[in-house]
Computed example of a mutant assay.
Amino acid sequence: MKYLAQPWQTLCHHLNPSCAFCGETRIPGYPLCQHCHAELPWLSVEDQRPLPGCTASVSAFAYQAPISSLLLGIKFGRNLRELATLGELTATGILPQLTQVPDAILPVPLHTARLHKRGFNQALELARPLAKQLGIPLLTRPIQRRKSTLPQTELDASQRQHNVHQAFQLHTSLPYRHIAIFDDVITTGATARELAAVLRAQGVAHVDIWSCARAILRQKHELDPQIDYH
């Protein structure tokens, strides 16, 4: 069984002792039962390849059920309780894969208009347990998404890259040599790579790309040649 994130222990006295997914008795100090934990589409280091332009890329899950439906439900249904649970599970999946701890985590920022409409930045909330357990800062102010882009899910690979070109603007210098960019889902990696380019241009030597989930297709016949899944 993978490393289990510990902050849930402080909430045990206040939460229902049932699994967040199925309602059965959960593992003490953890939001899921043994069965649901084992059934999640966990990724290991061997399941992933680095994205171009980054030092390392790490994701907790493959983007498939039930993680995919959870992420969509959170994003459009504003289920903040499930968001907190998924943040803890993301930390559980990512922490054992790390070989180096970055100086800070940078959640991919939302454009102001989208942030106001949604009410929260999903990437930021999912990254909170990671930052807390690693004891490093979450960067929420230095970089702004100055371009209101189309949703990446509506575009093909080449359109995604063009969509996020020059979408981010750095407002202040960053006193860090190693930063992990965090996004909820990595598909082509276009958004994270664009943000990584901004960081490298400002002298950040090592840029990791982390995510809750990643699109990983294992069979050659499943691959779309228009998409760089790795």
Rank of each mutant, 00 (worst) to 15 (best):
I186H: 02
R200N: 04
S148R: 15
L86T: 11
T187C: 00
A157P: 09
T187L: 00
E125D: 09
A167N: 07
T92A: 00
A180D: 11
V198I: 15
A113S: 11
S148L: 15
P142A: 00
R146K: 12
V164R: 00
A201M: 12
P102M: 12
L98S: 04
L130A: 09
F120C: 03
Q166Y: 13
L98T: 10
R118H: 09
A180F: 10
P142G: 02
V164T: 08
V101M: 06
T99I: 05
G135H: 13
T92I: 09
T188Q: 01
N121R: 07
P96S: 10
V198K: 06
K132Y: 15
D103S: 06
Q161W: 13
Q159C: 02
I136L: 04
H171S: 05
D156H: 12
P137S: 01
H178F: 13
T92P: 01
I181T: 04
L134P: 06
L174N: 05
R193H: 12
L98P: 05
L89E: 07
Y176S: 04
L126A: 03
L124V: 12
I186P: 03
G203E: 03
A196S: 05
A167W: 14
L124T: 13
L86R: 02
P137H: 02
Q169P: 03
E194R: 01
E125V: 13
K132P: 09
T112Q: 11
R114D: 11
V101R: 10
A197I: 12
T90D: 09
A157C: 11
L115Q: 14
T149P: 00
Q144I: 15
P137K: 03
G203I: 03
A127L: 12
Q166K: 14
V207P: 01
T191F: 05
V185Q: 00
R118A: 07
V108E: 01
V207G: 03
I179G: 04
A127I: 14
V108Q: 05
A84Q: 12
G189S: 06
R160K: 11
G119K: 11
G189F: 02
Q159E: 14
G119M: 10
A123C: 09
K147H: 11
V207H: 00
D184T: 11
H206V: 05
K147S: 07
A201N: 15
A131M: 13
Q166S: 13
Q122N: 09
L170H: 08
L89W: 11
H116Q: 15
P102E: 13
G189M: 04
A196D: 07
E154C: 04
I186Y: 01
P102I: 13
A104Q: 00
R128D: 10
I143Y: 02
N121Q: 07
P129H: 02
R200Q: 13
I94K: 00
R145K: 15
Q166M: 11
T149L: 02
H178D: 06
R200F: 05
V101Q: 10
D156W: 14
P142V: 10
H171Y: 10
A131S: 14
A197R: 15
F182G: 01
G93A: 02
P175A: 08
